[in-house]
Amino acid sequence: MLRIKGLTKRYRTGDLALKGIDIEVPDGQVMALIGPSGAGKSTVIRCINRLVEPTAGTITLNDTEIVGLRSGELRRMRRRMGMIFQEYALVERLSVMENVLSGRLGYVGFWQSFMRKFPQSDIDEAFRLLARVGLDHMADKRADELSGGQRQRVGICRALIQNPELLLVDEPTASLDPKTSRQIMRLIKELCGERKLAAIINIHDVMLAQMFAERIVGLKLGEIVYDGPPDKLTPAVLTQIYGEEDWASTIRKADDDAEPVDEIAPATPAETPVIERARLAGLT
């Protein structure tokens, strides 16, 4: 359970990015955060992880207060939250495996990580996750040799190997083509379902948000202007969030939910993982 109360952020430049917002995200809920550019979506996520310092307000994750933690406690807190970034933010000159394992840095000591001697259980978990997203045969490739969709899946693995209680996802699909975008969103949703993970997903694509999130929060100029289920997102609400526009074609129609035929990584493993992998590799 994530509780945000009165979260306010004023940047050193004077921008008041968040004006005292309150959000509660129960365990297992996938929440989409939408809003125009500059609304403060990234700021919310980065405040939760304390990559930026909140100016005021409280954030509690499962009864631990995040604001005001000292550095050691903050590190332990951060490893309970997995983060996924818009431009993937993989360390490009490290291999896929090293990128995934870097999600365990909060758990291992410096020398262990320096010598790349991670516990076997971490390595098993890394291979399991990579297999889950169809990339285990690419473990020793360098991250900058991957396509955008593949990189984002590595980013997802890096977040999940932290064994987090909360996923913070900042525009996961902004640099991807429409089809890959759906695959990535579906993957995130499935993984959250499997692990009963709460997630906050910043996203610009309203249709995708409606398709994959159970709850939508609309942010505008640092204030929450909508908080409710996806199907209550009417043109009037969108106008309130984004401003005047013809919204009719943006909003998802009921029959648009048909699953595409070439589906990504089903939750249940196939009998022949080799074929499965080859197929997945071809997708991106």
Partner: peptide
């Protein structure tokens, strides 16, 4: 999840 993979795959940083 029990994929048909060896239970313990070791990994070392490739030189």
């Amino acid at each position: 999840m029990s994929l048909a993979l060896p239970a313990h795959r070791t990994w070392k940083k490739p030189p």
